[in-house]
């Protein structure tokens, strides 16, 4: 996942996004994309949460880990998990059409 921004994929996404800011996407297409992305966020949130917790546990269980390292990761995990819940809720709202474009 990290590193996705590099090379043609990242450049392409960034370039397309930049252009999209200057054009109006038809509402039906735009709403479809929002729903599809919503599914992505719902899947990404638990994946990122698990990956982050695993990384934290690996650091905490590593040889020579101190109480300072453990505290640092407990703080990071405890603040990161609710944010991932927020991302999943955001995805859910997208799928439900809460962010749908209604004008046009």
């Amino acid at each position: 996942m990290l590193g996705l921004y590099e090379g043609a994929v990242g450049m392409g996404i960034a370039a397309v996004c930049a252009v999209l800011n200057f054009v109006t996407i038809p509402a039906n297409i735009s709403n479809l994309i929002k729903k599809a992305l919503g599914v992505c966020w719902i899947l990404l949130a638990p994946y990122a949460a698990v990956a982050f917790v695993q990384a934290g546990l690996a650091k905490m269980n590593a040889k020579g880990a101190t109480s300072a390292v453990n505290t640092q990761w407990v703080i990071l995990i405890s603040i990161f998990l609710p944010i991932m819940v927020g991302l999943a809720i955001h995805g859910w709202y997208s799928v439900k059409g809460e962010y749908d474009t209604t004008e046009e």
């Binding site: 990290l2 921004y5 590099e6 990242g10 996404i13 996004c17 999209l20 996407i25 994309i33 992305l37």
Partner: peptide
């Protein structure tokens, strides 16, 4: 990789 991936995801959500 971390900041730029986050920026890219945010760009995607923000744009759309």
């Amino acid at each position: 990789a971390y900041p730029m991936t986050i920026a890219m995801l945010c760009l995607l959500i923000g744009t759309l």
